[in-house]
């Protein structure tokens, strides 16, 4: 069944590929853990600042249906983080999370470049360009 290798791989290239896989894997884990830690911290801070969150059903209705008072622009998020606001910390953590897949595509371009795989450098760059394009279309629409 797997008596012969299906694709000839030069030792050096494969070693390089494995190193890069490990690097990407660690990078992803770091990004996800960072975002998880910030989101958890923000949640705890929110509950500490607002003790009524533990007992008030009315607070819940305001949080889900009331006029949004949470930051969603980068400037206001960073300003909120400066004030140690729970909502702003959570928003920052979520932004880090949203950025991880995009970062992964970007890092993959370098990974394929290191493997001297020109075809996939091009393919992955197209994916990144399409991602940016679809974001711009979304922002305009």
């Amino acid at each position: 069944m797997n008596d012969a290798p299906l694709f000839p791989l030069e030792g050096t290239h494969e070693a390089a590929a494995r190193r890069i896989e490990r690097l990407i894997s660690n990078l992803l884990r770091a990004g996800v853990l960072t975002s998880l830690a910030i989101v958890a911290l923000g949640t705890v801070v929110s509950f500490v600042h607002h003790p009524e969150y533990c007992s008030s059903p009315q607070a819940f209705q305001e949080l889900i249906n009331g006029t949004p008072d949470y930051p969603y622009r980068l400037g206001s998020i960073l300003a909120g983080v400066g004030r140690f606001s729970g909502q702003a910390l959570v928003a920052l953590g979520l932004l880090v999370l949203i950025a991880t897949p995009v970062l992964r595509v970007a890092v993959s371009i370098f990974a394929f470049a290191a493997e001297k795989d020109r075809t996939y450098v091009v393919i992955t760059s197209i994916v990144l360009a399409l991602l940016v394009a679809s974001f711009l279309i979304g922002a305009v629409a």
Binding site: V39, L63, Y70, V90, I98, A139
Partner: peptide, 18 residues
């Protein structure tokens, strides 16, 4: 896109994401 429009509510999304 949803985030920039303010549709990502941190209170609702935090427990989901974590």
């Amino acid at each position: 896109y949803f985030f920039s429009r303010g549709y990502v509510n941190p209170f609702i999304t935090a427990p989901v994401a974590a």
